[in-house]
């Protein structure tokens, strides 16, 4: 990550925090806010500089996607970034309009988008963890903060472990994609499988720790948990990614298991 990228991540993070503070923007406000996103260059962040984009390197591109995952907003920023990237790859002129759904993807594009979602999920998981830690520190029951109960501490320790594992799986898949070798498909499948599982555990733990309040529409937790429940099965369901790994491992068989682990 160079300094310019890191400035971009900081600026994007600040903008996303502002945008996510607004609960339900009306249409005018929505367009004004999208304009701010455009001005920052986010829709074209993954497009080459020759085509008017920011031209982020793969690792930085995914880091920006992680930042977007940390702050769920009503704006399809990641979808638009990916759409423009694919359009540019195909020689079509990208534009800054919001794209909420990616259609007719090639296999390679679908893999790229699947990893994008995976990394976006790791961002959301970070937020769920910090939200839940804050909640149990603030919320008092039986005369003390929830955080002081050992049963709560251990649930959150497990959550922290899952979030860390998800991040590790995501980082690894991004490295493999950036390296550009054959190992990328397997690494993406592993990321989707491992991160998807972390999402299930994180969502249920975070809701349990938040109690009834986290189930209310007005609480921000549900923005993240409902997003994860959707994302984990987009660009290939979690189940399909998991079976893909299983097929590859079983096809090579018993004696290749360990060599496959060290090559993955």
């Amino acid at each position: 990550m160079d300094d310019i990228s890191s400035l971009l991540f900081d600026a994007a993070e600040r903008l996303l925090i502002d945008l996510s503070a607004e609960s339900a923007p009306d249409e005018t406000q929505y367009l004004l806010n999208w304009r701010k996103i455009e001005e920052m260059g986010l829709p074209l962040a993954l497009v080459d500089t020759e085509r008017g984009g920011i031209g982020l390197e793969p690792r930085d591109a995914f880091e920006l996607i992680r930042v977007c995952g940390r702050h769920v907003t009503p704006f399809p920023i990641v979808e638009t970034m990916l759409s423009n990237r694919f359009a540019a790859d195909a020689g079509t002129k990208p534009n800054c309009d919001a794209v909420s759904e990616l259609r007719d993807l090639s296999e390679r594009q679908r893999e790229f988008a699947a990893l994008g979602r995976a990394v976006q999920m790791t961002g959301a998981l970070e937020t769920i963890l910090s939200m839940t830690v804050e909640h149990v520190q603030d919320r008092c029951q039986f005369g003390r903060p929830l955080a002081k109960f050992q049963v709560i501490q251990h649930s959150l320790a497990r959550l922290a472990g899952e979030v860390a594992a998800a991040a590790a799986a995501g980082d690894h898949a991004v490295s493999k994609l950036a390296e550009g070798g054959d190992a990328s498909l397997m690494a993406t499948a592993i990321a989707r499988t491992r991160i998807g599982e972390a999402c299930s555990m994180a969502a249920s733990t975070a809701h349990q720790m938040h109690g009834a309040i986290g189930y209310a529409r007005e609480h921000r937790l549900q923005l993240y948990t409902t997003a994860l429940w959707k994302w984990r099965d987009e660009f290939g369901s979690q189940a399909s990614w998991t079976r893909l790994i299983g097929r590859m491992v079983l096809a090579k068989g018993r004696d290749s298991l360990w060599p496959m682990v060290t090559a993955a």
Binding site: A169, T193, R243
Partner: peptide, 21 residues
């Protein structure tokens, strides 16, 4: 067998991730 693929796929994903960590 789909159940076998799912189980092995999941275990492999865990194993590889643990190794990275």
């Amino acid at each position: 067998c789909t159940a076998a693929q799912t189980a092995i796929g999941r275990l492999f994903a865990h194993l590889v991730t643990l190794r990275h960590m």
